[in-house]
Write a protein that binds this DNA or RNA. Sequence first.
DNA 1: ATTATCTATAGATCTATAGATAATGC
DNA 2: ATTATCTATAGATCTATAGATAATGC
Lengths: 193, 193
Amino acid sequence: MSRLTPRGREIVLAARALVEESGPAALTMRALADHLGIKAPSLYKHFPDKAAVEAEVIALGLLETAEALEAAEERFARSASSAPFGSGPTGAAADEPGTLLAALARAYRADALAHPHVYLLATERPLPRHALPEGLEARAAMPLMRACDFDVDRARAVWAFAHGMVSLEIHGRFPDDADLAAAWRAGVRTLER
Amino acid sequence: MSRLTPRGREIVLAARALVEESGPAALTMRALADHLGIKAPSLYKHFPDKAAVEAEVIALGLLETAEALEAAEERFARSASSAPFGSGPTGAAADEPGTLLAALARAYRADALAHPHVYLLATERPLPRHALPEGLEARAAMPLMRACDFDVDRARAVWAFAHGMVSLEIHGRFPDDADLAAAWRAGVRTLER
DNA sequence: ATTATCTATAGATCTATAGATAATGC
DNA sequence: ATTATCTATAGATCTATAGATAATGC
């Protein structure tokens, strides 16, 4: 994204909007061009092919996830330092989770559900790693690693849980009346330690 | 599946083979017909449309998952009754997991990785519930429910963990050298109680 | 008679390239 | 001069329908 021209950036933002509106399959060069008020062939002067545009949308999604998790970490650090007795269950206010892991889980879910189609695009296919900014993937993984004290197996388990919850929720796999907040709590509580 | 004609069954099996070979997107009416040695329009005498064929493949996948989990339950029950001191960590032989939940997790992973593309087809889109045999979805969910003593929130958390692990693994999202068996153990161990 | 198949075809899309034209920046 | 756009078009697909033909089962 940062290495793009201004016009390239506009195109990627339109592509993201298109994906978010109508799903990953709706991202076609023609639909994208329509969205921008130009003709499809013009896009090829800015990107070599469709995959390149897609990769930029994925990079954007990954970056947003990283930023959302980092912001949650910071908020948690601030609230923890102002709570002298740590973060027992009692210390959790209405909008303040009890533990760092719970805070990250909430942020992960909120971010994914804020743009579910982009989340799926970034998640339900192999990552185009060669086309992503150096270090972005690792950056997105770091908050969870820190919260798990660099126990990589536990971090992966937590990530899988969070991804699974979001994926199943987005695809409508849970019953309509399922109490998903309770399922998240059940998972986070046990994975906590 | 059970309500299909013999020829319908053959078509669905070919469709499943096609999906498994080349992914959900490779399931086109033409490719399917080629696989069967007939022309695409002939398929419409057996199924009203492509979605109907897809739904049968999904039903097949769901049924296999249910059977795999039920088989794991039975194997566990048999091995537990022959182990007088229960299923402590010591009681776990090379191919025998320590707990029912671990056994189910292993079966879930093995089943999914035995036909990853069918797993994705059955999992990464809204279920065509109207086209599935009555009760199949619930049947596939039961083993996990039983293992969780009907604590539905915990069962959902475990399911999300297992689905997330499989999904991320299939899509190549973990590093190549990741010790996924360890991540599964970490997840199952903590979700155990 | 019914069933399975075929050919022919309509009607939509998609990605991507080639080459022309207009607009912008020296 | 360079850049962004356009038109025209090649070349692939896809799903699905209509109507003809061959084979099977009474």
